[in-house]
């Protein structure tokens, strides 16, 4: 929980994922779609993540599996950071 990237992801989820549960209490590996995130909400999450991290997800990365958990999102963001470096 001390990981700042995951904390920021959690904040984006709290603001945009419209989960029936509290995003703060979600395990990093929990399936967000099973937790109730709709496809429509996931689009808003992706947009908000691009904004929050000042990145653009390439098309090849824009897939459901890249956004299915906090860990998966952190990995996607890490991958973009590596490509940018």
């Amino acid at each position: 929980m001390t990981d700042p990237i995951r904390a920021q992801i959690r904040q984006v989820l709290a603001d945009h994922a419209r989960l029936p549960t509290d995003a703060a209490s979600l395990p990093d590996g929990a399936d967000l779609f099973q937790a109730g995130m709709t496809s429509h909400a996931s689009v808003n999450v992706m947009l908000a993540l691009e904004d929050a991290f000042d990145i653009e997800f390439p098309d090849a990365m824009l897939r459901r599996s890249a956004f299915e958990s906090i860990d998966a999102i952190a990995a996607a963001i890490g991958e973009i950071a590596l490509q940018a470096a």
């Binding site: 496809s39 429509h40 689009v43 808003n44 992706m46 947009l47 691009e50 653009e56 997800f57 390439p58 098309d59 824009l62």
Partner: peptide, 13 residues
């Protein structure tokens, strides 16, 4: 159209 409206803001190509 509603789905596409969301996706077109994300998809790059």
């Amino acid at each position: 159209n509603a789905i596409d409206a969301g996706l077109l803001m994300l998809a790059k190509e």
